[in-house]
């Protein structure tokens, strides 16, 4: 259960406020106009932006000031999710041990994770030798290995084609269901939100609104969202 308690983010003139709870195990879309602060919200939750006020809690524990790597979450960025100079296995290994001292059982886990995302036998490759879709799978496999209870997706699949993207989202949903992961997923595509996420956080006009039922929100969008959706 993720709680944003009177969270206040300030970046120059830009202000974003959030005050709500995301239930445990929810798949939650984050939608809203460009520049409204969707990525900013995720960056604050992940610990890259110290908030100007308020608290971030996970299961009641205050993580507002925890270092990004110490938070109970994994995040996939729009790009630069992999170190290009490390092999796929090493990139995954970082999820298990940041010093990359990997035991035999670690290697077994890595192999299993690769198989799970459909990339068995590609562990020795460098990211540049993989397609865009395969790179996304590696990043997802690392999140799988880290097995943190919260997963933040900042449009990591935006550069993929529609078919690949829906494959990846389906894989995310599967893995999240298996591990009971809570997912916050920035999306530009209302269809993605509708198919995958029962709940949606609307970010608009300086506020991140509490999660609402996705279908209801999209069927009767408030003015700010309606303008964005073009509906």
């Amino acid at each position: 259960m993720l709680t944003l308690d009177k969270l206040h983010i300030q970046q120059g003139d830009f202000t974003l406020r959030a005050d709500f709870t995301v239930p445990h195990g929810a798949l939650c879309a984050v939608i809203g106009p460009s520049g409204a602060g969707k990525s900013t919200l995720l960056a604050a939750v992940a610990g890259f932006l110290p908030p100007a006020g308020g608290r971030i809690l996970w299961q009641g524990q205050d993580i507002t000031h925890a270092a990004p790597g110490a938070r109970p979450l994994s995040i996939l960025f729009q790009d630069q999710n992999l170190f290009p100079h490390l092999s796929v296995t090493q990139n995954l290994g970082l999820g298990l041990n940041p010093k990359l001292r990997l035991s035999t059982s670690d290697h077994a886990k890595i192999a299993a994770a690769l198989t799970r995302v459909g990339l068995a036998d590609l562990g020795a490759r460098k990211p540049a030798e993989l397609s865009g879709g395969q790179q996304s799978r590696v990043a997802l496999a690392r999140a799988l290995l880290r097995a943190r209870p919260l997963l933040l997706l900042d449009e990591p699949f935006a550069a993929l084609g529609p078919a690949l993207k829906s494959d990846m989202l389906a894989l995310v949903a599967e893995i999240a269901a298996e591990q009971g992961t809570t997912v916050l997923m920035v999306s530009h595509d209302p269809a993605d939100a509708r198919t995958l996420c029962s709940q949606t956080i609307l970010v608009a006009e300086g506020t991140a609104h509490p999660p609402q039922d996705t279908a209801a929100l999209l069927d009767h969008p408030p003015a700010a969202l309606a303008a964005y959706l073009g509906a």
Binding site: A46, G47, F48, A67, P68, G69, A70, S74, I75, F77, Q80, N81, L82, F83, L86, Q90, L94, G95, P98, K99, L100
Partner: peptide, 20 residues
């Protein structure tokens, strides 16, 4: 390019020096 990724993976200190 890599500060955020390294931070999110808790890659710090000597390990960061050696691996990144």
């Amino acid at each position: 390019d890599y500060d955020r990724l390294a931070a999110s993976l808790n890659l710090r200190g000597l390990a960061r020096l050696r691996l990144l």
